[in-house]
């Protein structure tokens, strides 16, 4: 089986992670532009960050046989520094048409301020101009209100929900997001976001249609193997292979494939992994004991 993790911040991860991801069957990833843990103070650091997403990080991933794509955007936290935000917005047109840029993201709300809404709108317009999908970050605080407000803004701008992935959903947001025609992504992230048991339960209720599972692994305590681990748990809990493949591979590919910048042929020939090998004592995994040990505890809470 092969996995497409459509949200993972590899600039914050090590080569050990790349090795384990490749061994566990992750063949393609999307790295969204995000907040790097502390606020940037100059537009030049954004430029160099975007350069690393389309340059060195893509190269690093390729060394492990992983196809690397990215989304370009101004994250909501830094949208509140309006002087900087204006400069970043001027910079973005240089990047959004580039090879492997599969969307504008991750954008949305953090504190849900007026400035955040202003730059969410401006970037949604940019996505329309460049005919690109949008990757939405939904807020940690007051999530439900923020998610609904995000969709209202996007629809007001004229975005087509089928070209938007709303990320970091939970039990409280999923229904409306799906009802309004968006892709609903779920981030399996220990402690602060969603555990994968809850993910299985959500799928038992809503099925696999328009659902995407990702890791959002970053500089915090997070898990770059969250997608394969969740697939293993899903199999154990009786979801079908078709459903598992849909949410961990086909759906993210279909959503971001609308950019015209990602296709399966980019990683053709890469080996898949049997999810059964993840928990049935099978020793077929490439990468040896390290991955097997990592994968043997696939519950993320």
């Amino acid at each position: 089986m092969r996995f497409f993790d459509s949200h993972v911040h590899m600039v914050s991860r090590t080569t050990d992670d790349y090795q384990r991801m490749a061994a566990a069957g992750v063949t393609a990833i999307v790295e969204p532009s995000f907040w790097q843990g502390q606020p940037r103070t100059e537009v030049g650091t954004f430029k160099d960050y975007f350069n690393s997403l389309i340059g060195f990080e893509r190269f690093r991933a390729s060394q492990f046989g992983i196809a690397h794509y990215c989304t370009i955007g101004l994250n909501p936290k830094e949208a509140n520094n309006e002087k900087l935000a204006e400069q970043v917005l001027e910079l973005m047109p240089l990047y959004i048409c580039k090879e492997g840029v599969v969307g504008i993201g991750e954008i949305g709300f953090d504190d849900q301020t007026a400035a955040e809404e202003k730059y969410l709108r401006a970037q949604a317009v940019l996505a329309l101009e460049a005919d690109l999908p949008i990757q939405i970050h939904t807020p940690h605080r007051d999530k439900k209100t923020g998610t609904i407000r995000t969709m209202d803004v996007l629809e007001d701008v004229g975005c087509d929900p089928s070209k938007v992935v709303i990320d970091h959903n939970n039990e409280e947001t999923v229904k409306e997001v799906l009802d309004r025609g968006y892709w609903a992504a779920f981030t399996i992230y220990p402690h602060t976001k969603l555990g994968n048991q809850r993910m299985v339960e959500i799928m038992e209720e809503y099925g696999a249609e328009h659902i995407v599972v990702d890791s959002a692994a970053d500089w915090g305590i997070s898990d770059p193997l969250a997608v394969p681990k969740t697939a293993a748990l899903m199999k154990e809990r009786g979801l079908t292979i078709e459903q598992i493949e849909q949410v961990t591979y086909h759906n993210p590919l279909a959503a971001y494939g609308q950019s015209g910048q990602v296709s399966e042929s980019d990683w053709e020939g890469s080996e898949g992994v049997d999810p059964a090998a993840l928990f049935e004592g099978n020793t077929l995994l490439r990468g040896g004991m390290d991955v097997e040990t990592a994968m043997s505890q696939y519950l993320i809470e």
């Binding site: 430029k47 975007f50 350069n51 340059g55 893509r58 190269f59 990047y95 090879e99």
Partner: peptide, 9 residues
């Protein structure tokens, strides 16, 4: 050049 991806460089 300052904003180029790998193939562009």
């Amino acid at each position: 050049l300052n904003t180029a991806d790998i193939r562009e460089q």
